[in-house]
Design a protein around this nucleic acid. Structure first.
Lengths: 151, 151
DNA sequence: CGGGGACGTTGGTGCAACGAACGTTAGTCG
DNA sequence: CGACTAACGTTCGTTGCACCAACGTCCCCG
């Protein structure tokens, strides 16, 4: 037996934050996408519904800024949500350039549904961490995220 | 002024580990890709060079397992590295299915070079974190990563 | 009232991860 | 020894997400 762990990653990578970050984002993303797909949703849907219920009706441009979703992708996602009856898209009477997006009652139900799914995903994703470690991770990542991009 | 922070992300997202992970992996990935591109390299190159210098010559399949890079992508990356003279690809006399990849002297120099670049990237990426926090982050992410996929 | 700038929409690009298929070679087991 | 299974390397193609470019519409301000 030459190497007891022929699959082990090199130490240089295992201590490289940027690598750890991008690598662990893969299972995270996959889990989220799969579980949401199982109920016919996408990550964008949750992001939008969550933002709308927290801040109230907003324009698509603002939704893009809050969620980090590109404007052109917002269009498609809102189309899907509107078609399913989860949100309402209506022109802003005060500014006819804008569309005002509003969550519907069934949209709020949908959000709850997705929230349950995502709760299970977090559990699966962070299984090896205890509660304190999870809080630490969230806090650390939030700091990093704040430092780049969004305020 | 209705909302002092029209760009702020909703609290639901800001406390959702899977979202924080995928979001913060974006600047990380972008920084790495850009800085490496500036010296004519890609993330794959560093991963491969680091693995080879740490474990010695290995087959492409094993490199794939260690680095998490898909076999078909290994081919292309090794082509690039070999063409630049950073690695040597030769058939394994003991097993003619395999290619044995070996780092060259200039390859080791190249690794040092990339390591310097990546060091600066980490600094930039983790700027808001102190040393202890960085260690925590690395430790937490390693746990998560170990739990999924690679041992 | 003219011009710069924001908004929404469409269509297309780039890239990393992944999947499928194939020829070749090793190891195994009747 | 002969057949079957599995691993390796290679090529080609696909997917999914973030992003860019261009356009028409409309607001606001000087």
């Amino acid at each position: 037996m030459a190497d007891p762990h022929p699959h082990a990653a090199p130490a240089r990578l295992r201590s490289l934050p940027s690598w750890l970050l991008t690598q662990s984002s893969l299972p995270a993303h996959r889990l989220v996408a799969d579980r949401l797909a199982a109920v016919g949703a996408r990550g964008y849907h949750y992001r939008l519904l969550a933002t709308l219920t927290e801040f109230g009706p907003e324009s698509q441009a603002n939704l893009g800024r809050r969620t980090g979703i590109h404007l052109s992708d917002i269009v498609a996602a809102v189309n899907e949500l509107a078609e399913a009856g989860f949100v309402d898209r209506s022109p802003d009477p005060a500014d006819r350039r804008r569309n005002v997006i509003t969550v519907t009652a069934t949209g709020r139900t949908r959000l709850d549904e997705l929230e349950t799914v995502l709760g299970q995903v977090q559990e699966e994703l962070l299984a090896p961490l205890n509660d304190q470690e999870r809080e630490q991770l969230v806090s650390l990542l939030a700091k990093v995220l704040d430092h780049h991009g969004r305020l």
